[in-house]
Nucleic acid binder design. Structure first.
Lengths: 193, 193
DNA sequence: CTAAACATGTAAAGCGTTACATGATTCG
DNA sequence: CGAATCATGTAACGCTTTACATGTTTAG
């Protein structure tokens, strides 16, 4: 259900075609909630059926067509309901730490690979999120820029502060994962001399 | 697919009935990978069909029955393949941080609730994981005790060190989430005087 | 003219969630 | 004899992944 609200979050700022939405998605909310286009297009159709958005068919050239979506009143309302309602936390289900719990049974080389890979993965994520923060602070973030134009100037600083705060949480978590994986590599070295 | 290997991890230590498995599951691997019994029983059947485990029907009293499962050679092999193979990391999909990214649009009271709840959730997880570490170190952990009896003494210290290490990663992550949520609460206070 | 970008989907399979469903045995 | 524990599932629904599928337009 989160995809729906992630899409509404973009659409509330202004109308977009499915394609534009999908592009903007992957370089904004997509850093927090991945979705491939094969999931976005059908979801847009379902949202339209549900009355949250409305799409208008446009022609492009001779035979080309595209659908421009905008959020309806119901859609805006649904977004605010979602953002204000208490979160439902799902149960723990963590593949990496499940593996880690049985690392003693792995071959040392495989264990080393696992931990090095874990550090690598989270370093990549860290870089992505860190550069999002940089783009937000430098005013280069395309989606945020559009959003800021839609709200009164007095609220802009607040909006920026919250965005940065959200990404900082991810950055801190990634750092914790990297520290942990590196400590694991040292542990491995100590236990397999 | 992880559930399958979590179950094999328990079964490789010795035979267990579905019920025993489910109980031990919830107080060991279940801290890292949640699964309800309605998922465990059918999965055991599928694993049996796949030849990874074998079940023997027992009677209990007059009409009672239960099925005792043990891992087959194929099952043990599948477990080792899994633990030694490179992890596939799934794409980011983080409901809490998605919400956080749009917290500026929430009512201040709802934002405060969200962050307080986030801290609460992760404090609960932290306590669970921390007490798992305590149980591992004090030798009270039932599943680990069984496992330790199945391996040579020389490897026991190593097995304990890895188990603790796995849970420490979760503990550190939970601490990072709590710090973040609390910083968010301070931020909220500053922005909504 | 050809590659890149624009544009939009369908289908099948797997995994997980939630709710429902039922009964036996043992302990106090 | 009643409650707790033992014991095992089914059914329906929804989300995600992956693979497949197809065509148009524009810029160089």
């Amino acid at each position: 259900m989160s995809l729906r609200y992630a899409l509404l979050a973009l659409l509330r700022v202004g109308p977009l075609s499915g394609y534009e939405l999908q592009k903007l998605f992957s370089e904004s909310v997509g850093h927090v909630w991945h979705a491939p286009d094969s999931q976005i297009y059908p979801e847009l159709r379902r949202m339209e059926t549900a009355g949250l958005i409305r799409g208008e068919e446009q022609t492009r050239g001779e035979r080309g067509r595209r659908r421009i979506y905008h959020a309806t009143e119901d859609g805006a309302e649904a977004f605010f309901e979602w953002i204000n309602e208490p979160m439902e936390y799902s149960r723990v289900r963590d593949p990496a730490h499940l593996r880690a719990a049985y690392l003693e049974s792995a071959e040392p080389e495989a264990a080393r690979e696992f931990l090095a890979d874990h550090a690598r993965q989270h370093t990549e994520l860290l870089d992505r999120w860190q550069s999002e923060i940089d783009r937000i602070l430098s005013g280069e973030h395309p989606m945020l820029q559009r959003r800021l134009l839609a709200i009164p100037e007095s609220e802009r600083e607040r909006a920026i502060a919250f965005k940065v705060f959200a990404y900082e949480g991810l950055v801190e978590r990634a750092k914790a994962e990297i520290r942990w994986a590196k400590r694991g590599l040292r542990l491995l070295g100590d236990l397999n001399p």
